[in-house]
Design a binder for these strands. Structure first.
Length: 566
RNA sequence: CGGGAAAUAGCUCAGCUUGGUAGAGCGCUACGUUCGGGACGUAGAGGUCGCAGGUUCGAAUCCUGUUUUCCCGACCA
């Protein structure tokens, strides 16, 4: 490609709206342009990277025997009614009506669509195991799109679905996907950690996210030093190292704690450690059931764990208005003693073994002292409901957990029979018995992965693209367009290199500084500069991570390029 | 969805407090001088000041509404 014909509007200045480095780089480098919030035009550079990443995915999917296909983006809402997700998916979905008034939507994911097709066309165990995938644009009306391609309202995703007649087949399919995903990320130059993850409201097992540690990111992962344990913070389990001191139960006593709304304020006011306070948080479950959650004062409630325990579709903290209505107190005064308004009281394991604790008295500005479990309040269920803390021992090897912000670039899990049961995707097994098809679900955020790659491969002035997905493999930069000797050599090398590699030839009549700066933004694995030494058949070679270029003969350069791009 | 901020030239921003008819740098065009890390000079093109209404002799500036974008949080198969 001749750069004079290419389109990459670069700029010196950083756009004001971009915060993430990857976002800035892609805007400055002319990779993307925003069209509206969370929606971007992929300019030629980004498009090339995207296409190459897709080719890597197609290659690896082919290796594990998956056929690629393409589902429609425009879907009837009725499909989602069948699965029961129309209401659950809620505001995230782009909904529209066609001219006949039929409710429709733009596909945010395609479990339903695949299951519907399978339900009609897969009838025998002999047709399984089988798995299919597609790479296409998804639509999600995100509340808050951000960081460029990291979270868009329109984004490119690989989504794959496996269909199995039995658990063993599913396990094999899952393992194949896991291996393929590892190869895909390795080839795309993304450093990832597979972590234990939540599988969401539709259930599922072995939920594994591929997390790319980066400076920015929307997730936090907890890992130990050896990597024997790594989990998304929302699922992370850690060992509580606090050892409660048991004291003889003392008499319950009500004390005034005016205007003490938080645990730290309360601890200071009463001169007790936070570990002697039991925090009570009222949750509204599925918009109707008030559930009181107890946890030791120094810990925080993990809502994902709580959702799993309660097996609910939604939950949220009660609002001040609801607290006033149900309990008659401000936040901070809620407690488990005589909490008759709670449909259920659940507690985190940290509450076990505590004696003579401080709890809210269900009266604004009053707390009970010396409250004791079973004597003064009851707990219906105990479970691990807390957010793990950095530094706590992991549950496998008891090594301290380290927290890292990261980008979720992939997610695979064993979905099971949720959709197939709801949508009647059944088959006949060897015994002629009807069974629901067992599904697996696999996804990679392809456009998001671009952000992750850039975040992980930034250089001082630009980016160093991994060779398999670099927009160009070689950037041929001619210093002086008016120099006939340079032009002759450049044209010759352009032809020669183009037979084997993707070459961008900077044939623009620009100053050296402009060319180098743009070249840093293109981030090709090898830059070949044709300058003053062209007459001697000498060129300069530089990789994005090299501090300076190296002069070498054309022959050496060709060998070097071959080595680098092998 | 809650909280905060912003919207003026293609980009980055100033001007607004204290109303008087639009500015800078970069980019763009032409010419000249330069020519290996985003050159310099001269001359130019380019703006419904997000939109609507109000106050006023007069509004980028003050008031009201509205739209959009960004940030923090919540949410996120």
């Amino acid at each position: 490609m001749r750069q004079s014909k290419f389109f990459m509007p670069t700029s010196k200045e950083t756009p004001a709206d971009a915060v993430a480095k990857s976002h800035q780089l892609m805007l400055r480098g002319g990779y993307i342009r925003q069209v509206t919030a969370g929606v971007y035009a992929y300019l030629p550079l980004a498009f090339r990277v995207l296409r190459k990443a897709e080719r890597v995915i197609e290659d690896e999917m082919g290796k594990i025997g998956l056929a690629e296909m393409d589902m429609p983006h425009l879907l009837p809402a009725s499909l989602w009614e069948e699965s029961g997700r129309l209401a659950k998916y809620g505001a995230e979905m782009f909904r529209l009506k066609d001219r006949h008034g039929r409710p429709s939507l733009l596909g945010p994911t395609h479990e339903e669509t695949f299951t519907a097709v399978i339900a009609k066309n897969l009838k025998s165990y002999k047709q399984m195991p089988i798995a299919l995938y597609q790479i296409q644009t998804k639509f999600r009306d995100e509340n808050r799109p951000r960081f460029g391609l990291l979270r868009g309202r329109e984004f490119v995703m690989l989504d794959g679905y496996s269909f199995a007649a039995n658990r063993k087949q599913l396990d094999q399919q899952f393992d194949d996907q896991l291996a393929a995903y590892k190869r895909i990320f390795a080839r795309c130059g993304v450093t990832v950690r597979p972590v234990i993850a939540d599988s969401g409201t539709m259930g599922g097992k072995n939920s594994t996210e591929f997390q790319a540690p980066a400076e920015i990111g929307e997730d936090t992962i907890a890992t130990n030093a050896t990597g024997s344990y790594s989990a998304n913070l929302e699922m992370a389990v850690s060992i509580d190292t606090f050892k409660p001191v048991t004291t003889a139960p003392a008499a319950l006593k009500k004390v005034a704690t005016p205007k003490q709304e938080t645990i730290s304020e309360l601890a200071k006011f009463l001169a007790v450690p936070a570990t002697s306070i039991v925090k009570s948080v009222l949750y509204i479950v599925d918009e109707k059931r008030p559930v009181l959650v107890l946890i030791r004062g120094d810990k925080a409630v993990n809502e994902v764990k709580l959702t799993h325990l309660l097996d609910c579709d939604s939950l949220r903290e009660a609002s001040e208005a609801e607290l006033a209505d149900l309990v008659g107190v401000h936040k901070g005064g809620v407690g488990p003693v005589n909490a008759t308004w709670a449909a259920e009281i659940v507690a985190d394991n940290t509450v076990k073994g505590l004696t003579n604790v401080v709890v809210g008295a269900n009266e604004t500005d009053y707390q009970w002292l010396n409250a004791n479990l079973d004597r003064d309040f009851k707990v219906d269920r105990f479970a691990d409901l807390r957010v793990a803390n950095a530094g706590e021992p992991d549950p496998i090897d008891h090594l301290p957990l380290k927290f890292t912000t990261s980008i979720e670039v992939g997610h695979i899990f064993k979905l099971g029979t949720y959709y197939t049961e709801h949508m009647g995707a059944n088959f006949l097994d060897q015994n002629g018995k009807t069974q629901p098809v067992i599904m697996g679900s696999y996804g990679i955020g392809v456009s998001r992965m671009l952000s992750a790659v850039v975040e992980q491969h930034l250089t001082k002035f630009g980016v160093a693209w991994p060779k398999e997905i670099a927009p160009f493999s070689v950037h041929l930069v001619q210093m002086k367009m008016k120099d006939a000797v340079q032009t002759e050599l450049a044209e010759k090398l352009y032809q020669e290199l183009s037979t084997k590699y993707d070459v961008l030839y900077d044939d623009r009549n620009e100053r050296a500084g402009v060319k180098f700066a743009d070249s840093d933004l293109v981030g090709a694995p090898v830059r070949v500069t044709i300058g003053k030494q062209a007459a001697d058949g000498v060129v300069e070679v530089k990789r994005p991570t090299d501090d300076q270029a190296t002069s070498m003969s054309v022959a050496d350069m060709l060998a070097f390029v071959g080595q680098e791009l092998r």
